[in-house]
Design a protein around this nucleic acid. Structure first.
Length: 900
RNA sequence: GUGGGCGUAGCUCAGUUGGUUAGAGCGCUGCGUUGACAUCGCAGAGGUCGUUGGUUCAAGUCCAUUCGUCCACACCA
């Protein structure tokens, strides 16, 4: 027997309870062995983070897909997990220690890592608890962490494999250095910000000719590291200087003038100073001309001194890798200054020496660290790199060939662009929290061993080895996530069943960081693409369209929204009316509208339940002898099933949920329930039982259709109705059934509804109160269509009685509501103003005439009739016929009233 | 510089492979509350789909042009 629902819709009453139950009963685990798998691996949120709207959106989309596919019979797995977020977490812990007056170096690596793990224990679980609040039906028994044993094993394996294949190398290369985080970062982690600056025009003296050579720079403090100036070989202005030298001011050092294509004749004076250690382009020039690399900055953003020089020489001596080894300069009087202090001091000295010609203000984009927004220092530094070209190639092909799809497709351009232009990936980080690089050095003989096994003694000379102190870029481990979480390489059970995964759901802001790296890693290490599809969503913005951020304080906390409006309202808001890949705005108004929808469903269900007194079958229905209104709703319900499934299979979640919204509110609540209310009062009749059956069948099925979007309210209602399975989430998603199409009954009901609307419209325009009932005369040639449906007019068209006529009776004193299938006479003469009524009818006449003209025009076009699909032409003819029919009735009515 | 998004009702946005008289939510106007729901119902006003041209029987949808706006990537001595 159905059970009652609480009078008031209060999601807090049942959301947590239902989630707990689902989880404890194991419904989130893959439960259909042998069935076709459907797999999603959750983009792992950072352990430093709190759940924000972006996570809420990302995980809601995944949960909708997973719940849908689960109900469609797939063996469904959604793997959750978290990311150790090396740089972010390390920064938080350093900050925490700073408040205690401690530094990393003081407590040492081991103690530091202990603190980090403690942080993970305390906060790492926080975000997963929050994910439960939004209803995520992921398999928590398979929860993973990028630093757990399995993921770490995968990282080591991949590193060693790539090294052995020559795809990872160590070398002195130009990297982006963050002086605040004191680590290198990858190109993808640099953000450009426009900042004001200057061109300082400097004068360097040519040794051979004594002339002053003018050049401009935005970074005068790097001049101490200049090892050449470049001119273009084609530049006639400087043809006489080929092979000459300039004297570097302040240092009084002789450096060559080189010819290089990097010097652009059209820019500035056509002369460029070359600082190979501190500028990416200059580094390239230096390579081409075999220039020395002179480093003048320390890793914490100061000018180098004697101490730095000695330390660097010692380190270089130990390391057998000495290609491109920078020379460290003792900057003398500038040593120890910050780069900004040095800039001032150097400029002052240049000016005093007559080397500064002019200062020209400009705005330029400066690279900053995406974590701390400190200005990035390009720096030659010894780091580990992944060779991108061989890895990118197959990853590009995979998408170009269409084997791996982006949804919407436009994001594949984004992806291809980033892979086609990527430079080698700097993967080493001067951090402690992360996967330590599995490389071991012998300081004695210089031997280097790269191995997944800890190597304590040098295989060559037997002396103790030292592990590389650096860790790997967080994204190096994230790149392996789709297969490392499924047991690769050691425990391939899940891998066999669930890999490649089906779809990755993520925001467009992370395609370059993560998606591209997962794709080339998957191809390289498993030989297969990591997923078939990438469903890309946009960013969540506030009501004013601004990106949510801490500094603006405009972030909306999803948990607060859940408290106020319920989880289902939050989820509905995040998918309704949003197109894939587009940014969206959320606001209280939208949450409120969603909550109102939930409330509407709740009350409709309550109404159905209070009228159920039999145990109906929720899954089967006998359509024999059902009245038209029942077949009408069943037919529409059937169509919604088909459309929703089609939309879901194409990732058009917003369209699918919009159709359910319309069906539930406009069709089921506003019309069907109203149409059957009378029958529900006729207890004990066959008609009453049929209505109960149809209500149960449609409502139960609709709750299934809606369940992926609004899991909690649908479960609570579905269980109150007669049901067979324990939970709606493990029931079968409704399927389209050809036998449930009733086009004739649908058309008939549409005519009845049109007539009811026409009456309501007229009464409303004439300001007739609902309490003023009237006896209606329906005049129609289609009496069969209207026969037996007079009762609907009593309640819905405020009628006191209804008569059907084939031939119009005397219409004196009647207002006329006109549709294309009938004319309804309403005897409310005292309410009718002749002028107003004529105006109203004429307005309708104009509309009908417009429609007739449009349809006639179309049909008069021979090309249309000849070339358009026949069904379309027929439809147009039917429309013309209907419009003409309505037109005739309107004209007659107007003539009659005018004659009065 | 290269690539891309957006421009549809007062506001925020849908509009699926081109095919009804272009839709929704919020807001607005009028009416309505004795048993599903005022977190509601009924009715209504409001749009030449940024501009101009083209393809097509047919364009909000495809192509080109142009304006506005936002983003990504690149360069910037």
């Amino acid at each position: 027997m159905p059970k009652e629902l609480e009078k008031k819709y209060d999601p807090a009453d049942f959301e947590d309870r239902l989630y707990e139950e689902w989880n404890s009963k194991g419904y989130f685990r893959p439960n259909k062995p042998g069935a076709k798998p459907f797999t999603i691996v959750m983009p792992p949120p950072n352990i430093t983070g709190q759940l924000h709207m972006g996570h809420a959106l990302d995980n809601t989309l995944q949960d909708i897909l997973v719940r849908y596919k689960r109900m469609c019979g797939f063996n469904t797995l959604w793997v959750p997990g978290t990311d150790h977020a090396s740089i972010a977490t390390e920064a938080k812990i350093v900050e925490q220690m700073r408040k205690e007056g401690l530094t990393k170096e003081q407590i040492g690596r081991e103690a530091f890592l202990e603190r980090a793990w403690e942080w993970n224990r305390v906060y790492g679980g926080r975000i997963t608890e929050q994910l439960k609040k939004i209803g995520s039906s992921c398999d928590w028994t398979r929860k993973r962490f990028t630093l757990d044993e399995g993921c770490s094993a995968a990282v080591k394996d991949v590193f060693v494999k790539l090294y052995n294949d020559g795809l990872i190398y160590r070398g002195n290369r130009m990297v982006n250095w963050c002086p605040h985080c004191e680590t290198s970062i990858s190109d993808a982690e640099v953000e450009y910000e426009e900042k004001p600056g200057n061109f300082w025009h400097l004068l360097y003296t040519v040794k051979e000719t004594g002339e002053k050579l003018e050049l401009a720079t935005t970074r005068p403090e790097t001049m101490l590291g200049d090892t050449a100036v470049a001119i273009n070989a084609e530049d006639p202005r400087y043809a006489h200087l080929h092979g000459c030298h300039v004297i570097l001011p302040l240092l009084n050092k002789e450096i060559p003038i080189v010819c290089d294509e990097h010097a652009d004749m059209t820019k500035g004076t056509g002369v460029v100073k070359i600082t190979p250690a501190h500028d990416p382009n200059d580094f390239e020039v230096g390579q081409r001309h075999d220039l020395p690399i002179v480093r003048v900055f320390t890793y914490d953003g100061r000018m180098t001194g004697a101490e730095d020089k000695r330390a660097a020489e010692e380190a270089a001596a130990k390391d057998k890798l000495s290609v491109n080894e920078p020379i460290v300069l003792d900057c003398g009087k500038y040593a120890g200054m910050t780069t900004m202090e040095a800039r001032k001091a150097i400029l002052a000295d240049l000016e005093a020496g007559g080397y500064l010609k002019e200062v020209e203000p400009l705005k330029h984009d400066v690279g900053t660290c995406y974590r701390c927004h400190t200005v990035i220092e390009p720096m030659v530094s010894k780091q580990w790199f992944v060779r991108m070209e061989p890895l990118a190639k197959p990853a590009i092909e995979e998408v170009k060939s269409g084997s791996l799809r982006f949804v919407p497709n436009r994001f594949s351009k984004n992806y291809l662009h980033c892979l086609e232009h990527s430079r080698d990936w700097c993967i080493s980080r001067q951090l402690w929290w992360g996967h330590r690089i599995p490389a071991f050095y012998c300081d004695d003989c210089g031997e280097l061993v790269v191995s997944a096994e800890d190597t304590v003694l040098c295989p060559k000379c037997g002396k103790p080895m030292r592990q590389d102190p650096d860790t790997l870029d967080t994204w190096f481990s994230s790149a392996l996530w789709p297969f490392s979480t499924l047991g690769w390489p050691n425990d391939p059970e899940d891998l066999k069943t669930f890999y490649p995964t089906t779809v990755l759901v993520t925001g467009y802001d992370i395609i370059t960081f993560w998606v591209s790296r997962m794709i080339f890693s998957g191809l390289a290490h498993t030989g297969k693409k990591p997923f078939d599809d990438v469903l890309v969503h946009g960013l969540v913005r506030d009501g004013l369209g601004r990106k949510m951020s801490k500094s603006l304080g405009n972030g909306i906390d999803p948990l607060e929204v859940i408290k106020t409006y319920g989880c289902d309202a939050l989820r509905f808001t995040l998918v309704n009316g949003n197109a894939p890949g587009n940014d969206m705005r959320v606001s209280d108004e939208r949450f409120e509208a969603s909550r109102n929808f939930a409330n509407k469903i709740w009350n409709a269900a309550r109404f159905v339940l209070m009228n159920l007194d039999t145990d109906c079958d929720p899954d089967r229905i006998d359509t024999k002898d059902l009245p038209d209104e029942d077949k009408w709703i069943l037919s529409q319900y059937n169509r919604v099933i088909r459309e929703v499934r089609e939309n879901m299979d194409r990732y058009e979640l917003g369209v699918a949920v919009g159709k359910l919204y319309d069906f539930i509110w406009d069709v089921f609540c506003d019309w069907y329930i109203e149409l059957v209310k009378a029958r529900l009062n006729e207890k004990g009749t066959a008609s009453n039982l049929q209505a109960q059956q149809v209500l149960t069948y449609v409502l139960s099925g609709t709750m299934k259709l809606l369940h992926p979007f609004m899991p909690f309210i649908t479960e609570e209602i579905w269980r109150s109705l007669p049901h067979k399975e324990d939970s709606v989430m493990i029931s079968d998603y409704p399927a389209y059934d050809e036998a449930m199409n009733f086009p004739v009954e649908e058309a008939a009901m549409r005519k009845v509804i049109d007539a009811i609307r026409a009456v309501r419209n007229l009464r409303s325009e004439m300001n007739v109160s609902h309490s003023r009932k009237a006896h209606l005369h329906i005049v129609t040639h289609e009496t069969a269509t209207f026969a037996g449906k007079e009762k609907f007019f009593l309640r819905l068209a405020y009628a006191s009685g209804v008569e059907l006529h084939e031939v119009a009776p005397d219409a004196t004193g009647c207002a006329r509501a006109i549709t294309d299938s009938c004319e309804i006479l309403i005897p409310i003469a005292d309410m009718i103003d002749k002028v107003e009524e004529l105006a109203r009818l004429n307005k309708e006449l104009a509309a009908a005439e417009g429609e007739v003209a449009r349809a006639q025009g179309k049909l008069a076009n021979e090309s249309f009739v000849a070339k358009a699909p026949a069904a379309l032409v027929d439809a147009e003819r039917a429309k013309l016929e209907n419009a003409n029919s309505k037109l005739a009735k309107l004209r007659a009515a107007i003539a009659q009233i005018e004659a009065l």
